[in-house]
Design a binder for these strands. Structure first.
Length: 457
RNA sequence: GGCGACGUAGCCAAGUGGACUAAGGCGGAGGUCUGCAAAACCUCUAUUCGGCGGUUCGAAUCCGCCCGUCGCCUCCA
């Protein structure tokens, strides 16, 4: 399969170092606030990549970290009067709840920075030994001038970075772009002992230490949002390659485009967040996944309720294609659909085209059913391909109050059936209209009347 | 200021030199079915790809300029 590699800036044929197992590291969240739909987009993308790789026969070892110590966590914990640990546990719980709901497969390991301190200290000490880092006033900094290809991922030079002129000059640093590996403790902050005094790890070094610990010196795929390219991933490369000497640190770097809300990026600092929990109040997990996958992963995606609602409607036809058929004619042939689907996925995970194939297949199944064809081959292919995209095709889950109302709706429907049999259509239609106002949709067919709650739209 | 991405139908969104007389979805119009609906199915819905030049036998696709939108350069998926 071809993948776009941020490092080279072009499409490359994907070949893992070890043909049996793909080593994939995806940057995880800093758990200090609710998981939002921007996170969901990113993790749906990498979950879909993993599912496709597994579909084509690879084993994938997926590792994803939690940055469980950081300025924001400390600040948030102090504001709300809880311990850092409790705060982190709460939002890690929120994260897993959201990811499970979205049918995102769990990683093999979820290392946490605070539980990897010895590995982190080893890495920092090694970098100092090799002349790539230096202690200064309780901190330890990475010496960017010691790596001649620093900037190769984000495709910029040290000079152009400085030209940005938004860097806080710090007199402890040898070079303005040097970044912190170890932060000396300030009063009241969580800290760990180190050869350079008490402190905590910088953001970038944890990923170096954890990927090394759980995946080894070289990764096949390193993923994350495009906002992580610089400085986070650039710095990871610098640390990892200087520490291990193994190049490249990751063979492929993949970055998803960021979710936008209105015209702005959705981000914690802008405060324009839609949480996954809120989104799932209104829309099915399938709709969220399909929404994310209906544009290419490297493009930005503008999130809106209208957009999600349109996707939700589009799913109904696909779900209909999976309802039982009773045709006995020739099977609807789905082999060509599978081939087109695979070709799309092979092309840098072109999920918009893959999704289009799913819609084509659903239409062919529905058409075949109308024509009296057998549709079970088509249906099993539809489920198989849908599963690669993580789609379950499950209906919306009814709330407790909706379940409680069901017997009464059944009663009204059976009364209406009697009325229709007696050709009392005005009354029958009145019942149907009234139920529609309550969000209950009726469908009459030769097999009787079906009803369901309408998804909000 | 530096680096980069993008601009395709009312909306979302693929396609990046010739099979494009431009996928797929939403919305809209008409039809089949139905007591009427709904759902499903059928047909139609961009002679055109931000604008202007250029390269080419041929451009949505390559080059230049202009206009517009967005991202990164600072915590972020």
């Amino acid at each position: 399969m071809k993948l776009y590699n941020t490092l080279s800036g072009r499409l490359e044929e994907f070949v893992p170092a070890d043909a049996d197992e793909v080593k994939m590291y995806v940057c995880g969240v800093t758990p200090y606030s609710s998981t939002h739909v921007g996170h969901a987009l990113s993790y749906v993308v990498f979950d879909t990549l993993r599912r496709y790789l597994e579909y084509t026969g690879y084993k994938v070892r997926h590792v994803q970290n939690f940055t469980d110590v950081d300025d924001k966590i400390i600040q948030r914990a102090q504001e709300s009067g809880v311990s850092e640990d409790d705060l982190v546990d709460e939002f890690i719980g929120d994260y897993f709840h959201a990811m499970d709901a979205l049918n995102i497969q769990r990683a093999a390991e979820y290392p946490r920075a605070t539980r990897e301190i010895p590995r982190i200290l080893d890495a920092i000490a090694g970098l100092i030994d090799r002349g790539h880092a230096y202690p200064a006033a309780g901190d330890v900094y990475f010496r960017v001038t010691s790596k001649d290809d620093y900037g190769k991922l984000s495709h910029r030079t040290l000079d152009s970075m400085i030209a940005g002129a938004r860097i806080q000059v710090d007199e402890n640093k040898e070079h303005p772009m040097d970044f912190v590996l170890w932060k000396g403790a300030k009063p009241g902050e969580p800290s760990w002992e180190s050869p350079w005094g008490p402190g905590r790890p910088g953001w970038h070094i944890e990923c170096t230490a954890m990927s090394l610990e759980y995946l080894g010196e070289q990764l096949d795929i390193h993923g994350g949002g495009q906002d992580l390219v610089f400085p986070h991933h650039e710095n990871e490369i610098a640390q990892s390659e200087c520490y291990t000497g193994a190049k490249p640190f990751s063979r492929y770097w993949m970055h998803n485009g960021l979710l936008q809300l209105g015209s702005d990026k959705m981000s914690k600092s802008l405060g324009n967040l839609v949480s996954v929990a809120d989104a799932l109040e209104e829309f099915t997990p399938d709709a969220m996944r399909l929404y994310f996958l209906s544009s290419h992963y490297r493009s930005p995606l503008a999130y809106s309720d209208e957009g999600a609602a349109a996707v939700e409607r589009s799913l109904e036809r696909v779900r209909h294609a999976l309802t039982p058929g009773n045709g006995s004619g020739p099977q609807v042939d789905a082999a060509e659909h599978r081939a087109r689907f695979t070709a799309a996925m092979e092309d840098d995970l072109n999920t918009p085209q893959a999704v289009a194939v799913l819609f084509d297949l659903a239409r062919d199944i529905n058409r075949g059913r109308d024509a009296g064809q057998s549709i079970d081959d088509g249906q099993s292919t539809l489920r198989e391909l849908g599963d690669v995209l993580g789609l379950t095709f499950a209906e919306r889950v009814s709330s407790a109050s909706e379940l409680a109302a069901a017997p009464f709706i059944d009663l009204l429907v059976s009364v209406r059936t009697e009325l229709r049999a007696a050709r009392q259509f005005a009354l029958a239609d009145q019942i149907r209209d009234s139920l529609a106002e309550q969000g209950v949709a009726l469908e009459d067919s030769a097999q009787g009347t079906q009803w369901q709650y309408q998804s909000p739209s």
